[in-house]
């Protein structure tokens, strides 16, 4: 997957777990938590959806890498590049 495809995949997951949010103005370098109403259960949903949809396993110590769109895409690129 290209970085743009990964970005779109993450955006689709966010749209499902935060269905009341407007994602059109989502800023790349700002933490999801600072611009969306997300809590720890929602972050676990992001991890679970990546596992379910793409079989990507994210170890707990790497959860902080999912803070923003920019950091998430950067983290997932090497993992998902061959998908």
């Amino acid at each position: 997957m290209t970085s743009e495809e990964i970005r779109e995949a993450v955006r689709n997951i966010l749209a499902d777990i935060a269905p009341d949010e407007d994602l059109s103005d989502l800023k790349e370098d700002v933490a999801f938590r600072d611009q969306l109403e997300l809590d720890s259960m929602d972050f676990l949903d992001i991890v679970m959806e990546l596992r379910k949809r793409y079989r990507v396993q994210i170890p707990e110590e790497d959860y902080l890498e999912l803070a923003s769109m920019q950091s998430t895409v950067a983290y997932l690129e090497p993992i998902m590049k061959d998908m």
Binding site: D16, I17, A18, P19, D20, E37, M41
Partner: peptide, 8 residues
């Protein structure tokens, strides 16, 4: 309810 509440 918001959609997120319903989902959760």
């Amino acid at each position: 309810q918001r959609r997120k509440e319903i989902r959760r």
